[in-house]
């Protein structure tokens, strides 16, 4: 009778925040274009770049990135359909379309791509029931709804879709626990909750959720190690520190988790040798977890020299303000 245990033990000593190392980790990631891991992740390159660049921006290192190279790459990834692909010769997808638009917003260079075509591509993704497909092949998922709405709002073109229907679809994905799954009937998952709450935040519909019920479920994600998991009885993972925290922040209940313990967990997931964050202490670091480790620390309002992150868009707050976007939050009265 194995004792069920879904948590980890933190190492005895937790390192300080190693900003310099993380910056170097991200800056050198993929500089050697033959590097195996880099090439084998080509099919999600655009998102990888968004993770790395956003993290670098938070650390104030954006000027050390190769802006022109990135912009050129993105321009080449936009296809005839208007959608943007993960990489050259790959197919366009709404996941990578959002990543590209996010990068362009950060670089303040939206004119790099044909915006009207992006708008058209995203608009064509909406289905009669309000949901969105990821690409022309028809897969439907809450992530795609968020990507569509976030992309269009960043381009200030939310008007081209039926927002009310989009919201209706989100509400169909609400579950018995107040959380949201990837489609109607799918189990609640912190990542999907972030997408749903993000979408409701952008469209000003947060009053549709039972914030107390959902936030309780979210704060129950915190485990004795301080880390957060994405579903009950799962192991903690740095990326959920972001998805859970951002949703709790938007819902005005960030204080329902224990911040000190969480900071400790996130810091323990740093790779003290090569830099970067991993999902759990001792695992291999990657840009994805590095971004979400840093955004979590940024949200937790610690005194680290990190720029503020916007919980709805997962982009630096200054960029969102520059775009004059005001995604709704429940801890703000109007």
């Amino acid at each position: 009778m194995p004792v069920l245990k879904h948590d980890i033990e933190l190492p005895a000593s937790v390192p300080e925040l190693l900003l310099e190392k993380h910056a170097n980790f991200l800056l050198s990631y993929g500089t050697d274009k033959d590097e195996y891991m880099y090439c084998m992740t080509e099919h999600m390159r655009m998102s990888g770049m968004y993770w790395g660049l956003t993290a670098l921006d938070l650390m104030g290192k954006l000027e050390q990135t190769n802006r022109n190279e990135v912009l050129e790459f993105i321009a080449q990834c936009q296809t005839e359909s208007g959608g943007i692909a993960a990489s050259l010769q790959h197919d366009p997808h709404i996941l990578y379309t959002l990543s590209a638009v996010q990068i362009l917003c950060i670089y303040n260079a939206l004119d790099t791509i044909d915006i009207e075509k992006v708008v058209k591509y995203v608009k064509e993704r909406q289905q009669p029931d309000g949901s969105f497909t990821g690409d022309i092949w028809g897969e439907i998922d809450m992530r795609f709804s968020f990507c569509a709405v976030a992309t269009l709002s960043l381009l200030n073109r939310l008007d081209v879709i039926d927002v009310e229907k989009a919201v209706e679809f989100v509400m169909k994905c609400m579950n018995f626990d107040g959380g949201f799954g990837s489609k109607p009937g799918a189990e609640s998952h912190a990542g999907m909750i972030y997408c749903s709450i993000g979408l409701l935040s952008i469209t000003g519909n947060l009053h549709l959720v039972d914030a107390d019920q959902l936030s309780w479920w979210l704060c129950e994600r915190q485990l004795p190690s301080g880390g957060l998991n994405g579903r009950p009885e799962k192991l903690p993972d740095v990326c959920y520190s972001w998805w859970v925290l951002s949703a709790l922040t938007i819902l005005g209940r960030l204080h329902w988790v224990n911040k000190e313990q969480l900071v400790k967990f996130v810091l323990a997931c740093q790779d003290t040798e090569s830099g970067g964050f991993s999902d759990r202490p001792g695992d291999i670091a990657d840009p994805f977890h590095t971004l979400f480790g840093l955004t979590a620390l940024s949200l937790l309002n610690t005194d680290y020299p990190l720029k503020k992150i916007n919980p709805t868009y997962c982009m630096p707050e200054y960029v969102i303000q520059r775009l004059h976007l005001k995604p709704a939050r429940l801890d703000q009265s109007n």
Binding site: D212, S215, W216, C219, E220, Q222, P224, G226, R253, H255, W256, V257, N258, Q261
Partner: peptide, 14 residues
């Protein structure tokens, strides 16, 4: 359940 003490305090207030 000290990790969530603020939740319980809010619930108590409610």
């Amino acid at each position: 359940d000290s990790l969530r003490s603020n939740y319980y305090k809010d619930l108590r207030s409610k």
